[in-house]
Amino acid sequence: MLLGSAHAQSNTVASPNASFSRPEVAALGGVVPTAPVRLRVWGFEVYDARLWTPRGFRHSQAMQHPFALELQYLRKLEGSAIASRSIEEMRRLGSFSEAQAQSWLTALRELFPNVGQGERITGINVPGVGAEFWVNGQRAGVVKDETFARLFFGIWLDERTSEPKMRAQLLQGLQP
């Protein structure tokens, strides 16, 4: 599950300016991570989300900026379940054809492995291209579709997200 009926809470383990070594964000140059925000679903801790943004990032124009969204999992989840839940959440934010849904689902199932505690999946927004995905610091692949990228990152950043508290915490301190 990426998102569900859950309670998101800020996790203050690391400060937003902590130094991290993440090859997936190195190419973005000068990005700064937000404080991690924990997703809990029915009392179960699922993952900590962290947004990596460049200076001048405006969340109202997020898709015009390169940025990264990192999910560090706190429990075992099947990659196919993560992919399916992603498509479900994307449907809440916009309409797309069944052919698009199947294409995106196939791509995500290939990109997202089964994960365990401490493992990371990071999505990078590549303006004008789509979304690039990394798993535990290793490049997994790209979905070259701007509509996909907008809807995928919208799971966390769109005002219509199913997790408005998580969104507010991820965007806290960033320019509108």
Rank of each mutant, 00 (worst) to 15 (best):
S80I: 05
V13K: 14
A99T: 12
A83R: 10
L111W: 02
P113E: 11
V25L: 03
P54V: 07
F133N: 10
E146P: 05
R160H: 05
K144D: 08
E110D: 09
A99L: 05
A107T: 04
L170Y: 05
R91G: 05
T12R: 15
F152S: 09
F44R: 15
H59N: 14
V13W: 06
A131D: 02
I121L: 14
F57C: 13
G43M: 09
Q9S: 05
E98I: 08
Q117S: 09
K144Q: 14
I121K: 14
W104A: 12
M90K: 12
E119P: 05
G30Y: 06
Q102R: 15
G4A: 12
R75P: 00
G154N: 07
V135L: 04
V41G: 01
A49C: 03
P16V: 09
R150M: 03
A14Q: 07
T147C: 02
E24P: 02
L71Q: 15
V25Y: 01
G130T: 07
I82L: 15
T34V: 07
R139T: 00
W134D: 03
S86M: 07
L39K: 14
K76T: 10
R38I: 03
V13P: 00
R160C: 01
G116R: 13
M1K: 14
V25M: 06
Y73T: 12
E132G: 03
A101W: 01
I121P: 04
Q169R: 10
N136F: 01
G123R: 11
T53Q: 03
P127D: 09
P16Y: 08
I155R: 10
E132A: 13
G56R: 13
F112N: 11
R55W: 00
G43V: 00
S103C: 04
G173H: 11
M63T: 06
P33L: 13
Q61A: 13
P23C: 00
K76A: 13
P36N: 15
A18H: 06
V31P: 08
F44Y: 06
G118T: 07
L93Y: 08
V46G: 00
L105I: 02
E98N: 10
I124G: 05
P23F: 00
S15N: 10
I87S: 09
S21I: 03
H65C: 06
R120V: 07
K165Q: 07
T147Q: 15
V115P: 02
E45D: 14
P127F: 06
M63Y: 05
R92C: 01
R120Y: 00
S95M: 10
L170Q: 11
G4V: 04
V25W: 01
R150W: 00
F44A: 13
F67N: 13
Q169E: 12
L157R: 12
Q175F: 03
I121F: 05
R109G: 03
E119F: 03
G56I: 08
V41N: 08
L69T: 09
Q117D: 04
L170R: 11
V142T: 15
V129H: 04
E119C: 08
A18W: 04
Y47A: 13
G30A: 12
T106N: 12
N11D: 08
F67I: 10
S21R: 14
Q9T: 05
L157Q: 10
V143K: 15
A6T: 09
S86P: 02
W104G: 04
N11H: 07
A18Q: 11
S19V: 11
